[in-house]
Design a protein around this nucleic acid. Structure first.
Length: 637
DNA sequence: GCAAGGTC
């Protein structure tokens, strides 16, 4: 036995246990350490480059360290603007002390430290935090010589073994990028939060000491909701006109739509229509296309954001409730890790055995069986996103829905299973027929769809695809006089208030928050009473509407004139993300980006500080407007 | 009392 001792550290306990299982061939010893949840697993493993080694595999639970300002930079000790230059300290939070000490202790006799955190930017930084904890226990651990990083994106056996045998070094550029984000978020968040709370409190717009927080993610999120709210409120319907004809054959009718669509000027369709009646009273010719195959695509492999969006739409669950339920299912071992951006299954993944597990279900078991035995299996579509850390969300083992007592968990589990089976199924197939009616120089079209094979829709009950009314059997080139015709008018309809499902997609598309935090940002701005959830009408969807405070804050910021930036819109945060990627790729340094963004926010802070009366007035105005409205009329919603 | 990011 060589005397190489390898300390492996994963980002969370479940990964440590599973990797230990693979590398030890199932025979590892579990030893309690200083932390209740983060066990230490011991075994031997032949790493190739170091030969047989004694291994201790343990874990952290996310970040180990937190950055903060020194205590003499507290709330009432300095003006908030000084936080842009204040020194920053690193602390081990109380609830992480045990984990930190466990790493320190276990590192004492290690010759090699191997990092097994998720392969994403934050994982790289957590790796660096682990290195610092380990070095405190054992100064011989050096980043250049004795720290290695394994690369893995899922826990399939060969993949894990390959990761163990081919480690690389920690990516310090990714570490820099995260350090940069942390520092900017801290300086900006805390300085603006203190400034806003103090200003609105002391001017009595709000109860003094009320917390008015600003965050680089909170405010763009609020901005989306306010923006939509204003568009609904300022919406003016517009009238439009269109021509519609109905053809009849063998007692079957079909509506044909004008290819020019809706016209916002009444004169034009009136002229066209009277021209048709005057010059082509005999009608026009119908052309019928051959039936063309069409399909409705099965869903992509499941990401966190889509899970949250769909559970919001199908079960009216909040993003937070969905993530909580998925987290519990994951901890119970029923579901795979619920936070992922990946919508493509790795090639090596054994989808068949995952489907096999579901054949036990009395509800969808027979469908799963058909997929396996009747050759109905079809490889899942590949999406474009891969976070290199986790595969798409999917069921790990079968659990009867009676065992899941919590209805949220039941819904989420069933949804994930059906989605998974659907993604392993064929697309739904149908036939589309198109008919064109040429009346004078105008064209009208009608479409008919016939569903032939439901395929994935048999198990994915959340979507529907039904055959439309069939078109009559017109002869090609047949001359027909419209059975009914006329000019119709309509009105454009207003946009709807923001639903949580839409907000999640907007945040995701704009790089506001991550799969793990989007739900938290939404609950945070609800907690802060910037927005609230309301129902539209009876039985209508639940929507997010801004409070007077939320409106006032966004209006206030929008009325200050910053040079070229906005504190209420997503662009700055997105720009930061772009710059962080540049740190990772090496085209900018951490210092470049820090200087650029701290300068920018500092200038915005100075502007805000000098124009605080605008913000106070804006909030006061929104407050007084709602209170007078509420006392004289019924509330708007 | 304060951010956003991990995760239990």
């Amino acid at each position: 036995m060589s005397n190489v001792r390898v300390l492996c550290v994963a980002e969370k306990p479940t990964i440590a246990r599973q990797v230990s299982g693979v590398l030890s061939g199932g025979s590892f010893r579990t030893r309690n350490g200083k932390s209740k949840y983060n066990k230490n697993f011991e075994f031997t493993y032949n790493f190739g480059q170091w030969g047989y080694a004694q291994v201790v595999m343990t874990s952290v639970s996310g970040h180990l360290l937190l950055i903060d300002f020194p205590s003499n930079y507290g709330w009432d000790k300095v003006t908030p603007g000084r936080l842009f230059e204040a020194p920053i300290t690193e602390v081990v939070p109380n609830d992480k002390k045990d984990i930190y000490n466990n790493i320190k202790q276990e590192a004492r006799f290690a010759t090699i430290l191997m990092i097994w955190t998720d392969c994403d930017r934050e994982g790289e930084y957590i790796g660096w935090e682990i290195v610092k904890a380990a070095q405190e226990g054992n100064p011989r651990i050096q980043i250049e010589t004795s720290v290695f990083r394994s690369q893995f994106s899922h826990l399939e056996r060969n993949h894990v073994i390959h990761a163990a045998n081919n480690p690389i070094s920690l990516n310090m550029k990714a570490v820099d990028a995260v350090a940069c984000r942390q520092e900017i978020d801290l300086r900006v968040g805390l300085s603006f939060t203190r400034l806003l709370s103090r200003s609105l409190g002391s001017s009595r717009v709000i109860e003094p000491k009320t917390l008015i927080s600003y965050g680089t993610c909170q405010f763009p999120t609020l901005g989306f909701i306010v923006d939509r709210y204003k568009r609904v409120k300022s919406f003016v319907p517009e009238q439009f006109w269109y021509i519609k004809v109905t053809l009849k054959k063998n007692d079957q009718m079909a509506d044909f739509h004008w290819t020019r669509g809706n016209i916002f000027d009444r004169l034009f369709p009136t002229l066209v229509y009277s021209d048709l009646l005057a010059r082509f009273p005999q009608g026009g010719k119908v052309q019928m296309s051959h039936p063309r195959p069409t399909s409705k695509w099965k869903p992509l492999p499941l990401t966190t954001v889509i899970l949250q969006k769909d559970c919001s739409v199908y079960f009216k669950m909040s993003a937070k409730a969905t993530l909580d339920a998925a987290e519990k299912l994951y901890q119970s071992g029923w579901l795979l890790y619920p936070r992922t951006e990946t919508d493509v299954f790795p090639d090596a993944m054994d989808l068949h055995s995952l489907i096999q597990n579901q054949t036990q279900s009395p509800i969808w078991g027979s469908y799963a069986l058909e997929l396996l035995n009747d050759g109905k299996f079809d490889r899942p579509r590949a999406g474009k996103n891969n976070d290199q850390a986790h595969p798409p969300i999917h069921p790990v083992v079968f659990v009867s829905t009676d065992v899941l007592r919590d209805s949220n968990q039941r819904n989420v589990y069933e949804y994930v299973v059906r989605r998974f089976l659907a993604s392993c199924s064929r697309d739904a197939k149908g036939e589309q027929t198109k008919a064109t009616f040429e009346w004078g120089h105008e064209k009208f079209v009608a479409e008919g769809v016939m569903v032939k094979e439901l395929n994935y829709l048999e198990v994915y009950k959340y979507q529907k695809w039904e055959s439309s009314k069939q078109l009559p059997q017109f002869e090609n080139g047949e001359l027909i006089k419209p059975f009914k015709h006329g000019i119709f008018e309509g009105k454009t309809s207003p946009p709807q208030y923001m639903t949580e499902a839409e907000l999640i997609l907007l945040m995701d598309a704009n790089g506001i928050g991550t799969d793990a935090t989007i739900a938290e940002h939404i609950t945070k701005i609800i907690d802060r009473q910037y927005v609230s959830k309301t129902k539209v009408g009876r039985g209508g969807p639940e929507v997010l509407v801004p409070s007077w405070l939320g409106m006032g804050l966004i209006d206030g910021f929008d009325s200050m004139e910053f040079d070229d930036i906005s504190l209420s819109k997503p662009f700055l945060r997105k720009d930061l993300e772009v710059n962080l990627s540049m740190i990772v790729s090496g085209s900018k340094t951490k210092q470049d980006v820090l200087t650029e963004f701290v300068t920018l926010y500092k200038r915005a802070y100075a502007t805000t500080n000098s124009k605080l009366p605008l913000l106070n007035d804006s909030c006061r105005r929104c407050r007084d407007l709602t209170t007078t409205q509420a006392s004289t009329t019924t509330p708007a919603m």
